[in-house]
């Protein structure tokens, strides 16, 4: 599904990813954990195709194709989805219009015609219920005036609408109260299947209590320094990041 080899990426000539490698197979859930500044969000942005990020070395292939050659919208149409850490508010853009354009763009790419209005509304209602999203929010502008938790749930709602093959969740759990976290996790679990893969980027282990990953990777200073099973997340929760830093010869900042 996704193969990242020796990825180096910079923002404004400042190298953030320094040789990251990762292999995600269909149906797998990978958690990427790391302290602040380790490059977690950069990885998400690079995968989604944000222009400010320059790939200086390495390769990313998605379903056998060179991902770096694709525009952000092509990546989405090919089945990649990014749930943003900070979802963008789009004042005046109705959620309905936005998602209709998105769904139909993806359908067109698959050679399908536009979804009719009745079908579309039905899908919206279904998927909103899926993440307990208040239907009233769908009448509003995209993310505008949503609370932090509503924004995160709205991202999972959008994910459900767009039905991706690979979903990257960028700190979707941060700032969520436990109820909202459960809702988000339930949404992800319901979408889990043998074809769909997830990359869950998180600072904390909490979400992983609800969405049990197949693999956990620890990202430190732009590289994956340790990989393991779900137990690695618990180890991190107990011991914090310092022991990893020590193992990797970094000075510990008190």
């Amino acid at each position: 599904m996704l193969t990242i080899r020796n990825l180096h990426a910079s923002v404004e000539d400042h190298e953030i990813l320094k040789g990251l490698s990762l292999e995600v197979k269909p149906g797998e859930v990978h958690a990427i954990m790391g302290p602040n500044g380790s490059g977690k969000s950069t990885l998400a942005c690079v995968l989604a195709g944000k222009e400010d990020y320059e790939i200086t070395e390495g390769t990313i292939t998605f379903k056998g194709e060179d991902l770096t050659e694709m525009a952000p919208e092509e990546r989405a149409r090919e089945g990649l989805f990014l749930a943003f850490q900070y979802p963008v508010e789009l004042p005046g853009v109705s959620t309905m219009q936005f998602l209709k354009t998105a769904v139909n763009s993806i359908r067109a790419h698959r050679g399908q015609g536009d979804m009719n209005v009745a079908e579309f509304l039905k899908l919206m209602r279904e998927k909103a219920d899926f993440v307990n999203l208040d239907h009233k929010l769908m009448q509003r502008s995209v993310n505008e005036g949503f609370s932090g938790g509503e924004k995160k749930r709205a991202e999972i709602f959008q994910m459900a609408m767009l039905d991706p093959q690979l979903a990257i969740l960028d700190e979707t759990d941060s700032g969520l109260d436990i109820d909202a976290l459960r809702v988000v996790a339930a949404g992800v679990n319901k979408m889990r299947n043998s074809e769909r893969s997830f990359v869950i980027i998180t600072h904390y282990q909490r979400l992983l209590n609800f969405v049990v990953p197949d693999f956990v990777h620890i990202l430190l200073d732009g590289r994956i320094v340790k990989s393991g099973g779900p137990e690695l997340a618990f180890e991190l929760e107990d011991k914090g990041y310092d022991w990893i830093k020590e193992e990797n010869g970094e000075a510990i900042v008190a």
Partner: peptide, 9 residues
């Protein structure tokens, strides 16, 4: 960028 990550040209 946000719109484009949803498949919108």
């Amino acid at each position: 960028f946000y719109c484009r990550t949803r498949g919108i040209s």
